[in-house]
Design a protein around this nucleic acid. Sequence first.
DNA 1: GTGGTCTAGACCACC
DNA 2: GTGGTCTAGACCACG
Lengths: 131, 131, 131, 131
Amino acid sequence: MWMRIDPSDGVPIYDQIVRQVTFAVADGLLRPGELVPSVRELSRQLTVNPNTVARAYRQLQDEQVLRPVRGTGLAVAQGAAARCRKKRAALIRQRLQQFLNEARRSGLEKSELSSWIETEMARVYNAEAKK
Amino acid sequence: MWMRIDPSDGVPIYDQIVRQVTFAVADGLLRPGELVPSVRELSRQLTVNPNTVARAYRQLQDEQVLRPVRGTGLAVAQGAAARCRKKRAALIRQRLQQFLNEARRSGLEKSELSSWIETEMARVYNAEAKK
Amino acid sequence: MWMRIDPSDGVPIYDQIVRQVTFAVADGLLRPGELVPSVRELSRQLTVNPNTVARAYRQLQDEQVLRPVRGTGLAVAQGAAARCRKKRAALIRQRLQQFLNEARRSGLEKSELSSWIETEMARVYNAEAKK
Amino acid sequence: MWMRIDPSDGVPIYDQIVRQVTFAVADGLLRPGELVPSVRELSRQLTVNPNTVARAYRQLQDEQVLRPVRGTGLAVAQGAAARCRKKRAALIRQRLQQFLNEARRSGLEKSELSSWIETEMARVYNAEAKK
DNA sequence: GTGGTCTAGACCACC
DNA sequence: GTGGTCTAGACCACG
């Protein structure tokens, strides 16, 4: 199974599920029409309470990422891929803006910040290469 | 008064106070030995619950940024400036790493991320110039 | 086949089947003595779970709209036409009352509601004319 | 207290709460900035589980009707009145369309339907007058 | 005191 | 089997 939950991450479990499903749809890992694991099934796999999974799935329905198939389960909605890609981009951009604003408010110079970013980006993306 | 609190920012109020005092000390806006406003005084100025200010001041004492002056109040501690600069740098770096990790986990390519950062950095730092 | 099922309509599938059979009998589209499609046949035509069709047929038997013909299948019962017309009228009246009560509880004025109804009725019945 | 819940109404309790708060805001019974009863308080008044109230309040936050005031409670959001009026109108219109479509599909003539509506509307709104 | 999250377990309608 | 709703009770951060 492609999902990984960290209960002590600070970010709520239901939110981690929402994000990972969203990203999986954005990446085409889950295709429109495909059924997602049932609430009980996923709750077993993640050793998480079914209510928590249900809450995540409910939110994904509100966001039109999933649609109910009565008595059968939940399926990825038509057009969800585009929505998810948009949402992912918006999320990342928002985080980026938050970070940059905080850095600027902290009195960091643009040049200094640039060099930090360069350093850390090399580290983070090299870690990926090694892995 | 140089402090600005945004109660609907998502980040806890006590945390905003802690950060702004820390950054003020780092920038030399508050110098070692200088007295900070009393809990009641600051809570009035920021229209914030006194408990909240007290909590922030408690944390700043724990971090050796402030020290009690018996019968007088709280003053910026000796050596606080260096400590605050270090803390500020650490904070920013940590946020940067968090952001980069999240971006990478989201399947964002290094090149794409770079271009986003460039765009947003121009925006954020131009906004500063105009202001 | 005259029946149309919409699985994503919100109203349960078995209920849609029951209603459409009832209305067909009321309109004389299905005449007393006439055989209805078998459970398996109808479930294939509607691409619906056989259990669902069986449940609908069971309810229609309870309501004396269908009757079993030993070794042959289910037929429209004698006197079903009148019963179905009565049931259809009762159903519509009930929905109407529910709607009006809700509208009133929502603080809608009688005059305002009247104008809305006029507008929407024109739309709905014109759509029929065009079709 | 202005809220009335019917647990055996078929419509979910959390939904009844959402609707009644929405309508109260639409009617100006609750004004922007005003605090709504706390989760625990309302759950006591309605003899309903706090989680159920919390779920309703969460949805109202998603819909920008309520906004959190940290450590204090939930307040009616700015601009909520207009949003709620719009939502109320949309809800009623949707129900109206559903009803009219069902009536038409049932083979009801426009004139016959009109007379039914007139009769029932007189009943429903007279009931109000008497009350 | 406030809301937010999570667990546990029950009952329902639907397919 | 499926999701949806509700109750009960715990723990957390925040003001």
